[in-house]
């Protein structure tokens, strides 16, 4: 809401405004996509360089943030090609149908914890990031934009150049993939221990 189109740059002032207003968001997105700080910083640099060069062409039809997400996503795809990221593959829905009762009933052991409390656990945070990193990039991008950055399916489609339907299909497969990775990770013991430490039994002393 209410973000107006930036004017073509005359000096570093225009850059500074764009940078100041959006660098934290772009970095957060980059970190979620790349999974590590140094790579994320490279992506932030690439994104702002491209944004600054393209500022004159930006017509303000999209929100500035959507425009930056689009630039960052394209830059990420280019960087991943150079860095030989995980091979691209399709995730088929059939591949996620549990084949045993045990597989069906795998759970993420966070019962009784708020999401914030659960994510205080380093092992869970790392398992989540690893699961996201293992996703083929087109699925990862849909998950990050939709479930982590909070864009709508329509906005995610604009950024990725996809229909809403295609976004939803990719998002669903990405969630199923991450669910399987997390629930099969054997996190139970480590998640319960910190919870007990945080909440010692009452009534003792």
């Amino acid at each position: 809401m209410g973000q107006s189109a930036p004017r073509p740059p005359q000096s570093t002032d225009a850059f500074d405004k764009l940078y100041r207003d959006h660098v934290d968001r772009v970095y957060r997105y980059a970190h979620r996509l790349c999974g590590e700080a140094e790579w994320a910083k490279d992506l932030v640099q690439e994104t702002f360089l491209n944004a600054y060069r393209g500022l004159k062409q930006f017509r303000g039809e999209a929100r500035v943030s959507t425009w930056l997400y689009t630039i960052a996503s394209r830059a990420c795809l280019r960087m991943r090609r150079k860095r030989k990221g995980a091979p691209e593959r399709e995730l088929s829905l059939e591949g996620f149908v549990p084949t045993s009762e045990g597989e069906f009933r795998l759970q993420i052991p966070i019962e009784g914890l708020t999401p914030e409390q659960a994510l205080e656990n380093k092992q869970l945070r790392e398992a989540l990031q690893q699961a996201i990193n293992k996703l083929p990039k087109k699925y990862r991008m849909a998950l990050v934009l939709r479930d982590m950055e909070g864009l709508s399916a329509g906005e995610t489609g604009t950024v990725m150049g996809l229909s809403e339907r295609a976004v939803k299909s990719r998002l669903h497969r990405a969630r199923l993939f991450v669910r399987r990775e997390l629930s099969a990770h054997g996190l139970a013991e480590d998640l319960r221990r910190p919870q007990e430490q945080r909440r010692p039994k009452e009534g003792g002393s």
């Binding site: 999401p115 659960a118 994510l119 479930d147 982590m148 969630r175 991450v178 669910r179």
Partner: peptide, 13 residues
């Protein structure tokens, strides 16, 4: 567990 997955993704910073 799928709901938990989505919730964790939404809160991961």
């Amino acid at each position: 567990s799928l709901r938990d997955t989505v919730t964790l993704c939404r809160h991961h910073q």
